[in-house]
Design a protein around this nucleic acid. Structure first.
Lengths: 140, 140
DNA sequence: TAAAAATTTGTTATATTATAACACTATACT
DNA sequence: AGTATAGTGTTATAATATAACAAATTTTTA
């Protein structure tokens, strides 16, 4: 079907599997401690798998958190073109899929007319659920 | 004049001064080793100054590089509303000041209608000077 | 299909980035 | 003057990431 998808190696599968099971982004050393029972012993094994998974677009790095999250955009396959919203309170991260915004970013040129290969955009705010909790805590 | 500007402390001035002298973003430990002669001895002193300078918008953190750069937008005073272009080759970083893009980002709402407090956008590409060098190296 | 090339693995050690905790000092506020 | 707030200096350590090397595996291609 998908010509691009060379099958992943053992460690890459293990790491991807763990990341995909998590709703929130996960940290490298959290991945490590959670997959040690599967035979991954040391940081380089995790970081190598992460590098590869990022390169093929299966996961993204959340720069402001040093954490990693599965790509939610069906087989986007594009690393380094990412938009996230991040809750300052619970730190949950959602990948944003907004065609109009994508177009704005894709079409952006700087003053020199430079065309960019990629971008990373992180929005910060308070998610709905956390906002509701804050309101709850106010009335007492 | 500017009611907001409480004067900076000694360490904050030293750190800001060093960052402003550099065209490229600087790393925390590079700051440290460069200001030791001025009496800053340990990482926490640097990181505290960085935190404060970020909070008041004098500098910004370049998330993908773990580095710090002076704000180029005259007294923008707004932390966490940043747009950078980053050269993949020489790693030079320019702060982008594009009103139309700012408006797009400011006005952006996610599906839930969440309003965001801030954002960080990093564009990646090859700067003009590096592109020219690459062309130079091709013809031989 | 055998040899060469490229990728992945496992491992140890170490580099880099960042914060916790504590006692103390300076500055601003009323 | 007294208290609150912010900043300092210090030691120790936590958290994140990579270098380097030998071996095994998979992919390519001749």
């Amino acid at each position: 079907m998908d010509k691009k998808s060379k099958s992943l190696s053992k460690n890459q599968k293990i790491v991807l599997d763990f990341i995909q099971k998590n709703k929130k982004p996960v940290k490298a050393y959290s991945i490590l401690s959670n997959v040690q029972k599967k035979g991954i012993n040391a940081p380089p094994q995790v970081y190598r798998a992460l590098d590869k998974l990022i390169k093929i677009g299966k996961i993204h790095r959340v720069e402001s958190q040093n954490s990693f999250v599965a790509c939610k955009i069906s087989n986007c396959g594009t690393p380094h073109k990412t938009v996230f919203s991040i809750c300052n309170s619970c730190e949950i991260v959602s990948e944003i899929n907004d065609p109009k915004l994508f177009k704005n970013l894709k079409d952006f040129r700087d003053k020199d007319g430079t065309v960019f290969d990629g971008y990373n955009l992180e929005f910060f705010g308070t998610c709905k659920s956390c906002k509701n909790k804050q309101i709850e805590n106010t009335k007492h």
